[in-house]
């Protein structure tokens, strides 16, 4: 299992488009991908779960990957979030 603490920087927070970009990218991997936010875990391959988490700009969150391709998955997750999720 690998994980990293990150800060969400895109202005709109994890809304429709960023959430869809992120969940789409994570779905390519076979490992489990989880977003831990405010003490709750959310399935990061699920667009609806990410939206329900209601993560706003400036929030701290943790991405946790667990499975065969966990390193690759985490690397892409970090890059996506740090680059502002295509905003």
């Amino acid at each position: 299992m690998v994980s990293k603490q990150l800060v969400l920087t895109n202005a709109q927070g994890f809304h429709m488009r960023p959430a869809s970009v992120f969940s789409g990218a994570m779905s390519k991997y076979s490992c489990d991908v989880t977003i831990r936010f405010n003490g709750n875990d959310y399935n990061a391959k699920s667009l609806l779960n990410i939206i329900a988490a209601c993560i706003k700009c400036g929030s701290e969150l943790e991405v946790i990957c667990n499975g065969a391709d966990e390193n690759e998955a985490l690397a892409e997750a970090v890059e996506l979030i740090e680059s502002g999720l295509g905003e």
Binding site: S20, N43, K45, S46, N49
Partner: peptide
């Protein structure tokens, strides 16, 4: 158009 395309992404949500 993106609003409606969002519906496709939502219904295809693997968790849902």
């Amino acid at each position: 158009a993106e609003i409606l395309e969002g519906h496709i992404q939502m219904i295809k949500d693997p968790y849902l």
